[in-house]
């Protein structure tokens, strides 16, 4: 059975997406009343969770799909680095870093004739 067939697709999204995320939200509500925010276990959980998202970020930058799959890796990495420099120069303002990274990428794509 493929994930695309009718109800199965919705069941797949509901179980692997909805349930898989809301479990943690519900546990968060229950823990929010008594959780110690300085516990070592929570620190580890936090580290694993952040590393997971970071791995997703790295994959999106290194192995993009669609248009960016044909763009040079150097341009994508360069855009992230220039954006990071702007982010720190602007006292860690997300908007500054994001706008600079995107502008760099856009300029590079335009220059390469995309």
């Amino acid at each position: 059975m493929s994930w695309q067939d009718g109800w199965w697709a919705y069941a797949f999204i509901a179980i692997a997406g909805w349930l898989a995320t809301d479990i943690w939200r519900w546990l968060g509500v229950l823990a929010g009343k008594r959780l110690r925010d300085d516990s070592e276990a929570l620190n580890w959980v936090r580290a694993v969770a952040t590393a997971l998202v970071a791995a997703v970020i790295a994959k999106l930058i290194l192995y993009p799909t669609g248009v960016l799959a044909q763009s040079p890796l150097g341009l994508r990495l360069g855009a992230v680095i220039v954006g990071a420099v702007a982010f720190f120069l602007a006292r860690q303002k997300p908007a500054a870093g994001i706008a600079t990274a995107i502008a760099t990428l856009a300029a590079g794509l335009w220059w390469l004739g995309f």
């Binding site: 898989a20 479990i23 546990l27 929010g32 929570l42 936090r46 969770a49």
Partner: peptide
């Protein structure tokens, strides 16, 4: 596993 981070955020 990617959503574990939601728990401390919500908490």
């Amino acid at each position: 596993l990617s959503s574990v981070r939601l728990m401390p955020m919500v908490a």
